[in-house]
Design a protein around this nucleic acid. Structure first.
Length: 260
DNA sequence: ATGTCGATACTTTATCGA
């Protein structure tokens, strides 16, 4: 099963790019972030016509996550547990049922956290605590699952062009990276790092300042695998070519092949 | 080099978020 994640930065603006990429990469399950649309505005039909079931947890204006799946959904659950007052649409979990087995998949849009001297950074850290809590609960089931999305975390200096320039950024601060490492220490596997130790492999390049042309990128989109999923990991790749298309998102898709 | 996008409200331009 090929599981992908992509922060599209508006599904309405990126509809044609997304359909073209589906045709090219042919993923089975796709986690989307920053769809920037409420549920009833999400363009379901073109994706259904392309052969996908569609689950949406949208929001007007900002955020919003969705999951596309060639296989039927057994379960669909929006919202990350742990804070009922959190209104931001950043988490959607499902179980997809393939003929050969099932896989739990979550689409994650972890808060950016900047500027760090506002309430945004504590919100990010608290959200990470809730994600760690959820991951712990899922690990107890000892089943295959994938937590895929825009983590807004640069895990190591190898994952950014100029670490010094990011030293005070919410994506790279010690507490941010420490919380990400806690997920790994629990037993989750960073799919990309399990397949490659090559430095400077990015999933995001800012629209500004010619970041793409200069390859000033960061690796912030990740697929974290439970031990049962990691045992079946066959391949992980970043579809970098998509960043060169007309009207690109600032993120590119990343996917993992898991033998389910 | 506060350099680019996208959504929104309220307007054809500003603000916010990233």
């Amino acid at each position: 099963m090929k599981v992908a994640t992509w922060n599209v930065n508006s599904i309405r603006v990126r509809q044609e790019n997304t359909l073209a990429w589906l045709k090219q990469t042919d993923p089975d399950v796709v986690c989307l972030q920053e769809i920037k649309a409420p549920d009833d505005v999400f363009p379901r039909e073109p994706f259904e016509d392309a052969g996908y079931n569609v689950a949406v947890h949208g929001q007007k204006g900002f955020n919003g996550v969705a999951i596309l799946s060639k296989f039927p959904f057994d379960e669909v659950t929006p919202r990350l547990p742990g804070d009922d007052s959190d209104e931001q649409a950043r988490y959607l979990e499902c179980v997809v049922s393939a003929p050969t087995g099932t896989l739990r998949v979550a689409s994650i849009y972890l808060p950016n956290g900047n500027p760090t001297d506002t309430e945004k950074y504590p919100y990010k850290l608290a959200w990470m605590e809730r994600l760690i809590e959820r991951a712990g609960a899922l690990l107890e089931d000892e089943e295959a699952f994938v937590l895929a999305g825009d983590y807004n975390v640069i895990p190591t200096p190898e994952d950014v062009h100029n670490p010094d320039g990011w030293a005070d950024d919410a994506l790279y601060l010690p507490r941010t990276r420490e919380n990400y490492r806690r997920l790994l220490a629990m037993g989750l596997t960073d799919a990309f790092r399990a397949c490659s130790d090559e430095a400077h492999q990015y999933t995001f390049w800012d629209y500004q300042a010619g970041a793409w042309q200069k390859n000033h990128g960061i690796r912030i989109d990740h697929l974290l695998l439970s031990p049962q999923a990691a045992d079946r990991l066959q391949q992980c790749a970043i579809d970098k070519d998509v960043r060169d298309w007309e009207k690109p998102s600032d993120h590119v898709p990343i996917w993992a092949e898991i033998a389910v």
